[in-house]
Nucleic acid binder design. Structure first.
Lengths: 240, 240
DNA sequence: CAAAAACTGCGTCCGTCGGATACAGAGTAC
DNA sequence: GTACTCTGTATCCGACGGACGCAGTTTTTG
């Protein structure tokens, strides 16, 4: 990853254009989808640092330079991989209210991020979103329609939720991983011998630990906060 | 950034060891702090991709390889930069309750992340935290002592807040930047001509936009949610 | 049916980056 | 003063992203 420059115009066409009509010349041996799939497999295993044009090409039985006929560069390849890895958003659970919908939505997104650890790094900074990404966003706003929240607030909720899901995916190990030593074990080791410097942390770690509930905890607090706002809005509207 | 391997033992010594006693040989011309400072200046300007050992060395009037006498590699340099860039946590505002303390804490952290956009990428995945990072954590847990939350929950609150501050720093432009076109302007342009595909998003963007309040909004919801939990706990304790 | 046009895949080359290694000189302890 | 140790440096290497131009193949046009 030493390429920070993205060809915005070409990336837009790659993300949003429909398959074009009849072309001249020999027919391509590869497809964008296949290239993205190959890249995802490599990045899932070895991260974005392990993702090289060379390896992608090898896994497709092509030369490295052949890829550049399809993709302008590595940055755009990662963007395509991200769009493919996120995929279509799942349908909202039937009969669920806004809270049930958002809860499910956040957990599904968390799962996507956990399955593709490189996705976190790939979603830093301003980006050109793809159709799938916008479809995920659309789901949140749809769930919040008729709750009394303004459009701004609906988008802010989306930002808040996607941030939480993404952040917690980095703390959690990928699903295939063995249990292994978690973050807090290392924290406890670090604190040993420094108890008087970090007394509150030491005390917090002394209490009984039962599994990792950070996703659930944060999600519950966020949804509680949103619920309080919606309730307040409804009360205002009725009384005003 | 093509170095994902970190020498954990040496990094621990670099982050946590005190300056050692008298040494033999010629005295070093550089200090770890000066190197980290130089790296921060470069990364602030051009990001982690613009940060090369060569450039850091040049800005210190040394050869590239001289840096490796102080730092095992680039990954460890970034870790040191992060520790220096975050700095000591600010003192809690006087007389503030837990909510006031956490609100101020989150905004201060947000500010640090906004000033150093590369810090987001530098904090992905499991890491060895430095003294400053643990001191920031300690502040949160201290603020939540005697609120009735368990140690687990106090840590979960910290994860939740740091995630929000960090996530929103990436949406906001660095403080020195001109206003410029924000994210939502690009979103509106993307939606043009696709209104029937993303009806809810289109509607949300049609409502009046007045500035970017995503940080405030999310922070308020999170703190509301925590407050609700604390209140419920207190009620349980009194009635049980 | 022939020829031009367009597009694909590939071989070669280059600049840059992170890092290993070995060496010469400088400063300190005995 | 002498031996030892640590510093800064010069040189070298492999890997990577990407530019460029060539040859072959397929479709369109006369």
């Amino acid at each position: 990853m030493a390429t920070g420059d993205v060809d915005q115009r070409r990336l837009y066409e790659l993300l949003w254009s429909t398959p074009s009509g009849p072309r001249r010349g020999p027919r391509p041996t590869l497809t964008l989808a296949a290239i993205a799939r190959a890249g995802i497999a490599i990045a899932d295993a070895d991260g974005l640092d392990g993702l090289t044009m060379q390896r992608v090409a090898e896994s497709l039985d092509v030369t490295k330079m052949a890829l550049y006929r399809y993709v302008p560069g590595k940055a755009e390849l990662v963007a395509l991989m991200l769009e493919a890895a996120m995929g279509e958003p799942p349908p909202p659970p039937e009969g669920a209210d806004w809270r049930g919908q958002l809860d499910d939505w956040a957990r599904q997104l968390f799962d996507r991020f956990r399955r593709h650890p490189w996705a976190h790094a790939a979603t830093i900074g301003p980006r050109l979103p793809g159709p799938h990404e916008l479809a995920w966003l659309e789901r949140v706003v749809t769930a919040l329609t008729d709750t009394g929240l303004t459009g701004d607030e609906q988008l802010d909720v989306a930002v808040l939720l996607v941030g939480h899901a993404r952040n917690l995916a980095q703390h959690a190990a990928p699903p295939t991983d063995a249990p292994g030593p978690n973050q807090e074990a290392g924290l406890a080791a670090l604190l040993r011998g420094r108890e008087e410097r970090f007394p509150a942390l030491t005390a917090a770690l002394r209490s009984p630990r039962d599994g990792d509930h950070a996703l659930d905890f944060g999600l519950a607090r966020i949804l509680d906060g949103i619920q309080a706002l919606i309730t307040a809005r409804a009360t205002d509207a009725h009384s005003g």
